[in-house]
């Protein structure tokens, strides 16, 4: 484990900028979002979680796939340097690894090479994920439901803890270790530092609400697809896309052609299973015609279908959807409701 004085953060950012485009939480209006920074002064450290997750660095809200005109088709220029993300949280780091499974590593599919998304891979492949420990988790955080926690290093290249005077840094992957080794201002930590880290971690852990055991969740969901419980759960959903758009793991997209005359572009945009239009067919038929069907889809995808395909949940407990939902559909309560639900035996 290494450390450097907090005053050296600007230098560390500059050091990263030699190899990377550095992205970090930046204030945008009243909100905080991951944006590319030119100087460390732009970093907003006041919030625990950014409003919109960092997924948009690799999977932008709208992304031009190609443009066309009379001369032919052009693909947009690639990012010149890979991205380094400063100020990630453990939940977001794990989310990016999950999304990478979807876009670049669909190992469960028999035709696995067919499902490699070049747009994601280009932006993601050499990225550096620097996770910062959460010293002050929110009441909406529930990463501990997924065997994670405020100090979880999983998936990080470098793990950082902000101490009283120092940043403590740990290289996790070979890439992360190499980056740390190249920065001159680092020193080795001493026993006193380890003490501080332990205290910080125990304080952070004490802020977390007790976790819910999700051991039975996947199987339970498999049995209640047509249960009236969904009417109860889905009734108040108003079918906006706020939850999906702030979610670090939701990754559904739409493709839209925007052109005029001989010129135009094909764009990939975020989409959400909460929208009525998402499943509407050309005939006019909509297999998920109401909010109840759509809410069920969102829950089933995250905690059942995805587990079938990837052996993990499509959720890391960041709590953003809990905070933004206009009608307080709290996914934690929905999960508890499902786990507590007694399945009535059907007469056949």
């Amino acid at each position: 484990m290494y450390k450097f004085k907090r005053i050296y953060l600007p230098e560390f950012i500059e050091y990263l900028q030699k190899t990377y485009f550095v992205f970090a939480p930046v204030k945008s209006g009243t909100e905080t979002e991951f944006k590319q920074i030119t100087s460390f002064t732009e970093i907003d450290q006041s919030r625990l979680n950014t409003t919109i997750s960092p997924k948009e660095i690799f999977f932008p809200r709208s992304e031009v796939l190609f443009t066309y005109d009379e001369d032919g088709i052009k693909t947009p220029p690639k990012r010149e340097k890979p991205a380094a993300l400063w100020g990630m949280r453990a939940c977001d780091t794990r989310s990016m690894r999950i999304l990478n499974d979807v876009f670049a590593n669909a190992h469960q599919m028999p035709e696995k090479d067919m499902f490699k998304d070049p747009y994601w891979i280009d932006k993601y492949k050499d990225c550096l994920l620097i996770t910062e420990a959460c010293l002050n988790p929110l009441s909406t955080c529930f990463c501990n439901w997924f065997s994670s926690g405020p100090f979880d290093e999983t998936g990080s290249d470098i793990f950082v803890v902000k101490g009283e005077v120092d940043y403590y840094l740990k290289g996790i992957t070979p890439k992360g270790k190499e980056v740390l080794a190249g920065f001159e201002k680092t020193e080795k930590t001493i026993a006193k530092d380890e003490e501080e880290l332990k205290v910080l971690q125990s304080i952070a852990d004490s802020y977390m609400n007790p976790p819910t055991d999700l051991g039975d969740l996947k199987d339970k969901l498999g049995k209640i697809w047509d249960d009236p419980l969904w009417d109860e759960i889905g009734a108040k959903c108003i079918n906006c896309g706020a939850c999906a758009y702030v979610c670090p793991t939701c990754h559904c997209f739409d493709v839209s052609d925007e052109g005029k005359g001989n010129k135009g572009k094909r764009v990939r945009l975020w989409d959400a299973c909460m929208f009525q239009l998402f499943t509407k067919e050309a005939s006019g038929h909509n297999p998920r015609s109401n909010s109840i069907h759509r809410v069920r889809q969102r829950i089933m995808h995250k905690y059942n279908y995805f587990v079938d395909n990837y052996q993990k949940f499509l959720c890391t407990g960041c709590g953003r959807c809990v905070t933004v939902c206009p009608v307080n559909m709290d996914i934690r309560e929905i999960i508890k409701q499902i786990l507590d639900h007694k399945i009535e035996k059907k007469d056949k």
Binding site: R61, I238, C240, F275, P326, V327
Partner: peptide, 26 residues
Amino acid sequence: EYSRCIRCYACRNVCPSCYCNECFVD
């Protein structure tokens, strides 16, 4: 202000006066 909009349509969907079966944006 509007450049920050993420088009989640939460405003439209909570709005009691927005009740078209199919909104023009869709």
